[in-house]
Design a protein around this nucleic acid. Structure first.
Lengths: 103, 103
DNA sequence: TCTATTGTTCTATATTATTCGAACAATGAT
DNA sequence: ATCATTGTTCGAATAATATAGAACAATAGA
């Protein structure tokens, strides 16, 4: 059961985070993950877009260090790396999440 | 002395803010404006890039509602719209600024 | 009026990103 | 083994962005 590689929190950079969050689709994904408060499969995050498009966005979110993906069987379980990001960049992600739920 | 048009705080959208902040040059501009704590001319924000490039980035920062530019004579005085943005999206901009000064 | 200063706009180019169908890989079930 | 499921990767088309030189506009000063 090979797992996907993620950046360590030390490797995470602010510009990558900002870039990843600068897309409406990815903000939706982030918002859904935060709202769920638990791991979600890609399939459960249904934004009516092709699989390949969603996969692309997940790749960017993972690369930025915002999302962690654990492979369990055929499913990919996604969760926010909220605590880690908060520790490295206090307030950034939580403030964005708060702003997202407001709209 | 015609002034430049800016979006009202009601017109400001989170995705525009995130997009504007997803560029290293623009983050530098934001950081310098915050550090200065006062209005700066475009010339005072010297990042060793052509005027036209800088103008482009200022245009995006203005369009996102992050920067206000007042024309005074031949100079354009730039300042952060920190209070307004903080009120609409509490913590977002201040947390990013804090993260920027850390690096 | 002529000139210098400040910054924008125009234009073109190179780079990068988004999108999505199709093929592929890994796992689980029959 | 075969097939269904889940999601990634590939490839190509399209769109958006950054960059920067050149021309331009607005103002101030001599």
């Amino acid at each position: 059961m090979r797992q996907i590689k993620h950046p360590t929190i030390e490797q995470v950079e602010l510009t990558d985070i900002m870039y990843a969050l600068a897309d409406p689709t990815r903000l939706e994904i982030i918002a859904l993950l935060a709202k769920a408060g638990k791991k979600l499969t890609c399939g459960e995050i249904n934004l009516n877009r092709p699989k390949s498009s969603m996969s692309h966005h997940f790749k960017i979110l993972r690369g930025a260090g915002l999302v962690q993906t654990l492979i369990e069987g055929t499913e990919h379980m996604n969760s926010l790396r909220l605590e880690e990001i908060e520790q490295k960049y206090p307030g950034v992600l939580s403030a964005v999440l708060k702003a997202l739920t407001k709209d």
